[in-house]
Nucleic acid binder design. Sequence first.
DNA 1: CCGAATATGTGCGCTCCGCACATATTCGGT
DNA 2: ACCGAATATGTGCGGAGCGCACATATTCGG
Lengths: 169, 169
Amino acid sequence: METGIANLLGALSLAVMDRIEQGAREVVGRGGETPAALIVIGYGQGMTNDKLRRILGLSHSGTVRLVDRLVSDQLVERRPGKDGREVALYLTVKGAATRNDLLVSRISAVASLLDVLSPAETKRLGMLIRELLERQDTSELDRFTICRMCDDRVCTNCPLPTTKSKRDR
Amino acid sequence: METGIANLLGALSLAVMDRIEQGAREVVGRGGETPAALIVIGYGQGMTNDKLRRILGLSHSGTVRLVDRLVSDQLVERRPGKDGREVALYLTVKGAATRNDLLVSRISAVASLLDVLSPAETKRLGMLIRELLERQDTSELDRFTICRMCDDRVCTNCPLPTTKSKRDR
DNA sequence: CCGAATATGTGCGCTCCGCACATATTCGGT
DNA sequence: ACCGAATATGTGCGGAGCGCACATATTCGG
């Protein structure tokens, strides 16, 4: 195994996430999984507290309090869900705008590290990362977790495998 | 700008750091910058509270309390520094062992994602990452920050630029 | 020699989160 | 149709991690 290369990827990932998280905190004024929550809620219609919990990898109560904060910041609304037990989470207008700023901030943070490469090098790097992600053995939940900060406007055809993998679960 | 590739690198970085941080928490029983602190203290002779603060990007008091935790966990010792104001931080035997476990855990976390690539692909990815890091405009402090979790046993010749850059500061 | 700079420690409070417990709704077997 | 199990959410409580403001000790520089 090439541990030297693993180390380099670890260092790069740390640098990337430092910049993403710093920008995210400036945009939403909060840290932890709060920015990711805002992005995840914006993906879908009918996101529930419990789905969010699993995607973010938080405890149940931690997720409830996280949503409390989003609601008190007027970024998210709790509405009655289809199932009487569920709560359906929706972005407010302000929440959608903040989410948008968040995605822009994230892409520009990564791009600022990436733009030292030539277009050809960037493309080669992109293809390798795409291969790497394609071949991961990810459950559907894993996919949402990995993609919990992804920009759905620029990520057409996500490379992560969908149906197969992890014993079809 | 290729924002699609920036998005992929962001997703990969998130996946990598999720795994690194999970492993680190299991090894040291603590999160935040505590694992990185243990690694940084292990690099040098005569690490001080203030140098550590700058590398980790924490406040002064946050760093003092972080070291308090490391001391109470018997991973680090405070010794009188050369300068009468400074405190010299040293790993205990237990601290050195924990640091070692931490580095092993980190490399294996990254490797578990990386090993779906062929040796040739891995090598190409490594070269591109190396190029990417080489061309960053990093101050000396930036280098330490980016490398704050790096495995000094496997990272021979770090690609990050040393002397030039950021107006020679 | 004394004020400024440097380095560390402390009181206090905030954010983010988990555990344990409580409540409400739906599902499933009889 | 009914009742226990499963599902989904909310709450009391506390801990981990961190920052701000302030205090103290040591060193530097004019």
